[in-house]
């Protein structure tokens, strides 16, 4: 497989090229926000970003060689984590603010108008602060994003068919490649061996925090949809339904 013979440098170069373009909300934001208007803007942006996320995933070396079922499972499990990590990356140089897009920036206080969202904003801001303290580099960021995608669904059931088994093996090799790439990116920072190991650990530990915020966010969005605060449609609805039905 080509990705197993690819150097970590080449792997990072490919995932850097896969990065989605900057996306704009392109709405006239009427402030102050209402609960409905803020949720509508957030979900509109998420829906646009999701379409680009599929295209991004397809450019991760080896992803399209996985079975279609595995591709679908991985994306439906990680989509909100990926959106949140992107949000943290855009916000890393803006303490106290969440940069959802260049034309849609919110302070934590603006979260007050949506019931239950300030808690999520605070968790997002806390993780962003941690990335700021660590001085997260772009190469590390793209590796973490690919790790979230590839590590999102470790199925508990054993592969039943040859195709499933092959796809599972490809996925494990892909995870090896992305870990190698992150280790390589860290090795370029001029740290001691011990500091490199610690940095790898700290970055990996942040992923569990992102999974936790994503679960909170998923519950929040499902509640907002159930209460008819926001109309969820298109790809976002499909991803949300997939998630809630698999967890119920």
């Amino acid at each position: 497989n080509h990705q197993s013979t690819m150097s970590p440098e080449e792997f990072i170069s490919r995932i850097m090229e896969a990065e989605p373009p900057e996306i704009y909300l392109m709405e006239d934001l009427k402030k102050p926000f209402t609960e409905a208007s803020m949720m509508m803007s957030l979900t509109n942006l998420a829906d646009k970003e999701l379409v680009l996320m599929i295209s991004w995933a397809k450019k991760i070396p080896g992803f399209v060689e996985l079975s279609l079922a595995d591709q679908i499972h991985l994306l439906k499990c990680c989509w909100l984590e990926i959106l949140m990590l992107g949000l943290m990356w855009r916000s890393v140089d803006h303490p106290g603010k969440l940069i959802f897009s260049p034309d849609f920036k919110l302070s934590r206080e603006e979260g007050q108008c949506v019931e239950g969202i300030m808690e999520i904003f605070d968790m997002l801001l806390a993780a962003t602060s941690r990335f700021r303290e660590l001085k997260l580099q772009r190469e590390e960021y793209v590796c973490l994003k690919a790790m979230i995608l590839l590590n999102s669904n470790l199925s508990t059931s054993s592969p039943q068919t040859t195709e499933e088994l092959e796809s599972r093996n490809k996925l494990l090799r892909l995870l090896d490649s992305v870990i190698d790439a992150l280790v390589w990116a860290i090795s370029k920072l001029g740290l001691s061996t011990q500091q490199q190991t610690l940095r790898l650990g700290h970055l990996a530990m942040l992923l569990s925090h992102i999974r936790h915020v994503s679960n909170k966010g998923m519950d929040h969005l499902s509640n907002m949809k159930r209460k008819n605060v926001v109309l969820v449609y298109n790809l976002l609805l499909e991803m949300l339904d997939a998630n809630t039905s698999s967890s119920s």
């Binding site: 646009k48 379409v51 680009l52 599929i54 295209s55 397809k58 399209v64 279609l68 079922a69 591709q71 679908i72 994306l75 439906k76 298109n234 790809l235 499909e238 991803m239 339904d241 997939a242």
Partner: peptide
Amino acid sequence: TSLKEKHKILHQLLQNSTSPVDLA
């Protein structure tokens, strides 16, 4: 088939090569 039915848009986007910008 059920997986494809449940994730129609996702399935379509994964399978086709149309520019995602056009679809958005």
